[in-house]
Amino acid sequence: MDTARLKQLGLEVRDGGRGLTALLSLTEPLDNPAGHRKVERVDFRVEGERLVPVAPPEVVGLRPIALGAVREARDVEAEVADAFNEHLFHVQRRSAELQALGLSARVDPHSLVLSTEVSEHGLTLTLVADRQGHFRVSSAVRDGQSLPLPQAHTFELSEFRERSALVGYLAALFGEQGQQPARQAAGEGLIGFSEIVRAFGHEALVPPRSGLELLVLLEVEGKPYRFAGARVAGRTFRGLLAGAQGKVWAERFELDDFPGVVPLVASLLKVPAEAVKLVGAGPPQE
């Protein structure tokens, strides 16, 4: 990167031996409402044709600025302000969504990072939102033991209308090694869909706005997997396939286009359908 170009943008350029950094003094400081302080300067790391905010804590993780999109210092400042205000909007929106789910919303006064904690049945997870409002699991502990985290996995909080749906989704991400068969877990409150059909009949309907969650336990080549599905709205569902090492697949799908759990798992794991075995609470299924 041509340092003259950076200086033309009103940036103070430094070379610390690990690459260029650029400093911008703001004419209109950013307001940190949680820490009750003003951000008067932003430090960037220069990466090719991008400026990546790296300091102070309030701006770390904001979207990079493309140098081709700015001509002068006020353009750079406007990009920073837009990204910062967008982050504050996400913090407010996600905080309200967490509270609606019965979860506490914590905002770090220095970094303005939003986080919460979910604890259920011995599993305690810390969830952290990025600057774009997407959540990820930053720590996972089961019965006092830390668990490995799924790599680069984020999720959309607004898809979960009930706390139980969120807990079920997260629990599927961290399915225990060597899962117990569902027939053993049935005493913990699991209900087979065959029992629902037997009790209410094939003609029973799911109301348009009611939630619907399901869990399918599987075994593929001796390894345990879990498929979790939850209704988002109408005939749209959110699905997750997780194994002992974490998430394998997670996407939305339309009920009418869904091929079925076994064909989906076989396709994702690139195995024949007969290699996918369902683990049910009732008699083994053919």
Score class of each variant (00 low, 15 high):
K7T: 14
G222R: 06
R14T: 13
L269H: 09
T124N: 15
V39M: 07
K277T: 05
Q8C: 12
A100L: 12
V216G: 04
L62H: 03
T3N: 12
D108V: 03
R93H: 07
A83M: 00
G187N: 14
V42P: 06
S139L: 10
E86K: 00
R161L: 08
V46R: 12
V118L: 10
R183A: 11
V107K: 03
R252G: 14
L11T: 03
Q145F: 03
S146R: 06
R131V: 04
A34V: 01
A172P: 14
R106S: 06
V262A: 09
K277D: 06
Q285W: 01
K247N: 11
D75Y: 01
V91R: 01
V276W: 01
F227G: 08
R252A: 02
E117I: 13
A96I: 06
R252K: 10
L218M: 03
R50Y: 05
R50I: 00
R71G: 14
V39A: 05
N85V: 00
Q132T: 12
A228T: 08
H87V: 01
R136A: 15
E195P: 11
V262F: 08
F253S: 04
K7H: 09
T116W: 04
S164R: 15
A34H: 08
H153G: 15
S138G: 07
P150L: 03
L264T: 15
L98H: 00
Q245A: 14
P224R: 00
E251I: 00
E221H: 07
R231D: 05
D257I: 04
Q184E: 13
G229I: 09
V60W: 00
F227M: 07
